[in-house]
């Protein structure tokens, strides 16, 4: 039963999975935080996890890491329930950052590596390696509190990476980073993914998620609202949108009269229209040229941000056969 549901939300059909979260449920007292939440992550996949505040992202991650116990459901790794031994090979960066302020940074990283099961000499070597790789400025013997905020955040990331984990779970890794920090973080995550590490992270910066992630999950009210690649979320047979800029009198509504064309918005950048099924973009172009000189004519893919906004707002269209969102199986 649970498995059948999980299959439905498998955004990357056909790819083998390493991490499966199956039917997670969690309540704190009377408040239901997670209801039957499921998703899967493939090896070497970057999985972005988006949702409004309080949707259940952090709780999901805590349950995945075993910091919190779920009321129902299961966390599976390579097809078997994840236990402490398996989780030792994972890396975690919680949303609430924290390290030992007075501890020397290399000692600190080596300590975490050893807690994850590395031998002492390997741990020290790995700590030094990650301090170098992430460009932490400061001697290995410096205490954390003497570093700048940006450097402290790099050390924080290093703490999640230092034991060479097979899975990285990062809660809001980009929050509070300056643009350089964002690049360092993104580069570090990409290089991990290239090594075959699976990465799951949550973020409110949807442009980043869109740029980095192979797969995206939209979580809403404690359940997985939609899962898939950004392309899949957009949908292959989604209605086509065009942005057209025409030098025409401002009051002339040249597109509104066209059959099968819906005007979504009009502003200085042009008119955003959606073409109904069977309507050719050539018809639209002809109409535009008839109206005036065409300065711009381009197909528009909705950004993840738009998809997200559509998905989580109450006014999200009901999934009907005609709707461009039909493939997004609302899960409530």
């Amino acid at each position: 039963m649970v498995w059948a549901q999980w299959r439905r939300f498998d955004g990357n059909r056909g790819r083998p999975k390493v991490l499966d979260l199956v039917g997670l449920g969690k309540r704190f007292g009377e408040k239901v935080v997670l209801r039957d939440l499921s998703f899967s992550v493939a090896p070497g996949q970057m999985f972005g996890f988006v949702g409004t505040n309080g949707a259940g992202k952090t709780t999901t991650m805590r349950i995945a890491l075993g910091v919190l116990a779920s009321d129902s459901g299961e966390v599976r790794w390579q097809g078997r329930p994840a236990d402490a031994a398996v989780r030792r090979r994972w890396g975690y960066m919680p949303e609430e950052r924290g390290l030992y302020a007075k501890m020397r940074i290399q000692d600190q990283l080596a300590y975490f590596a050893e807690l994850h099961g590395m031998a002492r000499s390997d741990a020290r070597r790995s700590a030094a390696h990650w301090l170098r790789t992430l460009g932490v400025s400061g001697a290995p013997g410096d205490r954390l509190e003497t570093l700048s905020l940006g450097n402290q955040q790099r050390v924080q990331l290093a703490a999640a990476l230092v034991h060479d984990p097979e899975l990285l779970v990062l809660d809001e890794p980009f929050s509070g980073l300056d643009p350089v920090g964002v690049d360092v973080m993104a580069q570090a995550l990409r290089s991990r993914v290239e090594q075959g590490v699976s990465v799951v992270f949550s973020s409110h910066q949807l442009d980043l998620v869109e740029r980095l992630c192979d797969a995206v999950g939209i979580i809403k009210d404690g359940g997985m609202h939609a899962v898939g690649t950004v392309r899949e979320l957009r949908g292959d047979h989604r209605a086509v949108r065009y942005r057209v800029a025409v030098d025409a009198p401002a009051d002339e509504d040249w597109a509104a009269a066209l059959p099968g064309v819906t005007v979504l918005s009009r502003d200085a950048a042009g008119t955003l229209v959606e073409l109904g099924t069977g309507v050719s973009e050539q018809t639209l172009l002809d109409a535009a040229r008839a109206a005036g000189r065409v300065r711009a004519f381009a197909p528009v893919d909705p950004s993840l941000a738009e998809l997200f906004r559509e998905a989580v707002t109450a006014t999200a269209p009901a999934p009907t056969a005609d709707s461009p969102y039909a493939h997004l199986e609302a899960h409530a």
Binding site: V67, Y92, G98, L99, Y100, F112, L115
Partner: peptide, 13 residues
């Protein structure tokens, strides 16, 4: 207070 306990608890009992 430094929240480090969350990382620690993800690793050790």
């Amino acid at each position: 207070s430094s929240r480090i306990v969350e990382i620690l608890m993800a690793t050790v009992p």
